[in-house]
């Protein structure tokens, strides 16, 4: 004898519940939180180094950075801010809401205006695991090839902002920029697409986007 039990719940409901609690804590502390998602080596940490350098005297930025192993990204970022927490996920290929909760406990959230969560380098599952963030950012780079947005629709569809990094490499690598833009537009008509070169210090649009978002969230 067996009994069928209807359920109809999101598979990641337990993570979502924890993410909601995180979100509430972020709201209470008045901190604007972004989840930065991109492939390994897209330039996530480099973008955050630039951001911390650029904004250190105007806003307080904390970073939670997830990597399978090492504290290398955390060490790089710690040169620019005291509010850095490195999380090692071992074989885990993404951060979940529970890991973020533990990392949050190590930060003085009340002192922060912005918290950036650099997810584990991976274009797939970080998208499904909510962390409690206000915005999701999808980051691609020229060296990965122009088909990566089309191949990862989930990230493009879910993102509030899309970044294409390493545009300084366009002259050296076959990369059809127009095609990439079309793929992105096709999947997501509302999220801005920022084309930047972190290495060349060309990311003014990103800094504008971030500071505008923080102001908006302070006003609401």
């Amino acid at each position: 004898m067996s009994t069928k039990v209807p359920i109809v719940e999101n598979v990641l409901k337990i993570n979502d519940e924890m993410a909601l609690q995180n979100h509430q804590l972020f709201q209470n502390a008045g901190v604007f939180v972004v989840d930065l998602i991109g492939a390994p080596g897209a330039g996530k940490t480099a973008l955050l180094e630039l951001t911390l350098r650029r904004l250190w005297n105007t806003v307080n930025i904390g970073v939670i950075v997830g990597d399978p192993a090492t504290c290398r990204d955390g060490d790089r970022l710690a040169r620019h801010s005291d509010h850095i927490v490195q999380v090692n996920t071992g074989s885990g290929c993404h951060l979940d809401a529970n890991q973020v909760r533990h990392a949050m406990d190590k930060l003085a959230l009340k002192d922060l205006d912005i918290l950036i969560i650099e997810n584990v380098g991976n274009l797939i599952c970080p998208v499904s695991f909510n962390l409690g963030q206000h915005c999701k950012i999808g980051m691609f780079s020229v060296s990965e090839g122009d088909d990566k947005a089309a191949k990862h629709p989930n990230l493009v569809i879910s993102a509030d902002l899309l970044i294409l990094n390493k545009i300084d490499l366009l002259p050296y690598i076959p990369f059809d920029l127009e095609h990439f833009r079309q793929d992105v537009r096709h999947l997501n008509r509302t999220a801005p697409l920022l084309e930047v070169s972190v290495a060349k210090d060309q990311a003014a649009e990103w800094i504008d986007w971030l500071t505008t978002k923080v102001q908006q969230s302070n006003n609401t």
Binding site: T3, V5, I7, V8
Partner: peptide, 13 residues
């Protein structure tokens, strides 16, 4: 195409 749902389970008696 974005479904991600646990619909039902069956348990023994």
């Amino acid at each position: 195409g974005d479904e991600f749902q646990l619909d039902s389970i069956e348990v023994d008696t």
